[in-house]
Design a protein around this nucleic acid. Structure first.
Lengths: 219, 219
DNA sequence: AAATAGTATAACATAAATGTGATAAATAAA
DNA sequence: TTTATTTATCACATTTATGTTATACTATTT
């Protein structure tokens, strides 16, 4: 996990870096917005911690610039809690906000929370089944299960559309592609193998007779 | 669309209200969990935005109480992203979660997303009968009833054309297909089984002698 | 009230949809 | 290339749904 710390005060950067490094993060540093943009461009940054008040280019502008090109979570630092409203006004999709002075420990906790939350947004969970779309992995009762590509796509699509009955044609055109001119029953076979992979949760995939299939969440 | 905002801070409530009102939502306010329960009881609330930390009754408890009686989507607010895990642990069927500070714009977007997700636009309701076409499910007095495909199609068609007398030919060509050359009596049989499924509402399907059938709303 | 036409119901044979294991074809990996 | 994996199709068993017929019932007409 690569984290970029942007602050004009060297001391603050080094303190943050020290704590984050202790927790196994790789830390990049930048002293202003321009340098930050440069680093993001050339490295795979997973999260940015950025001060608002900086010379050359302030935090708002730098954040906006980076967000244009990269979908990276931001934690903003600011000396005053009043800045809060301004941040809101800018509507930058900030993930968290920490006011100075802050405890490094808390900051680290926030970093972890933001990362966790972001990961979760790309994760579908239902019953004991977890689809981590970023990692492209499926867990059943927290045990990794290997799916074939089609099985994966099918499961993901069913989960994204939980509680909606999906016809075979719908499934075929959305997963196989509109240009698939094969047999309807192909879906059935993949449902079969997918169910087998899901073990005791095989029944979350309901058959909708005369129609197709759906995955059902507890209600 | 009526939205209830529950937070002990007047400022936060008014900011949220302002933005939601701009988007055409009607907004109710409550400053604690008890008042929230009261409002939900006496109004038709479609969604609740609720802070977790509140005096008198915290958000977890209030949410749980309300969920007992009402199937309303919740968006929870919290000062700390750490609380997220706690929420998950409580397993309250929270629909979304926003950490403070948040941008009102984002909150509005979340509200819309949740409403969209929960909307069952293709749902027909009549007497105690509900046809959820998305889920392809039928409820009688909020109890799931399993229909055969033909029964389902027939009920859906009758409800879509409520108060209109439909001839057997009409029903056959619209449900069975124009190319069905079978017996008129076939319809009768399916009406019979459908009525049986509808239990005490069996009589909403009226026989129109010499003509066919219709489903009748009110009176 | 009897006769008639229309409708409800039950039973049952037929038909259709789905589940499953096997196999062949296609694709990717070695 | 060969090999392994994935995918699509087939064939058959099983389950479920459907349409028809025969008969009972109900409403309308005479």
């Amino acid at each position: 996990m690569n984290i970029l710390v942007v602050d004009d005060e060297e001391l603050i950067r080094s303190v943050i870096k020290e704590y984050l490094t202790l927790d196994g993060f790789k830390v990049y540093e930048a002293e202003d917005g321009e340098k930050a943009i440069e680093i993001v461009k050339n490295n795979s940054i997973d999260l940015v911690i950025m001060d608002i008040m900086m010379p050359k280019m302030d935090g708002y502008t730098a954040c906006k610039e980076i967000k244009k090109e990269h979908d990276i979570p931001f934690i903003m630092l600011s000396a005053r809690s009043e800045e809060y409203d301004k941040l809101i006004g800018f509507d930058l999709g900030i993930d968290d906000y920490v006011t100075k002075p802050f405890s490094p420990k808390e900051l680290v906790a926030r970093v972890k929370a933001v990362i966790k939350r972001n990961a979760r947004e790309n994760t579908l969970v239902l019953a004991g089944i977890k689809v981590d779309d970023l990692a492209h992995e499926v867990y059943v009762d927290d045990k990794l299960v290997t799916l074939t590509p089609k099985e994966y796509d099918l499961l993901k699509y069913l989960m994204e559309n939980k509680n909606i009955a999906l016809s075979r044609e719908n499934l075929l055109s959305n997963i196989w592609g509109y240009d698939f001119y094969g047999d309807d029953r192909t879906v059935d076979t993949h449902i079969k193998t997918l169910r087998a992979r899901l073990g005791k949760y095989r029944d979350v995939i309901k058959t909708v007779r005369g129609m197709g299939y759906k995955i059902e969440d507890k209600k």
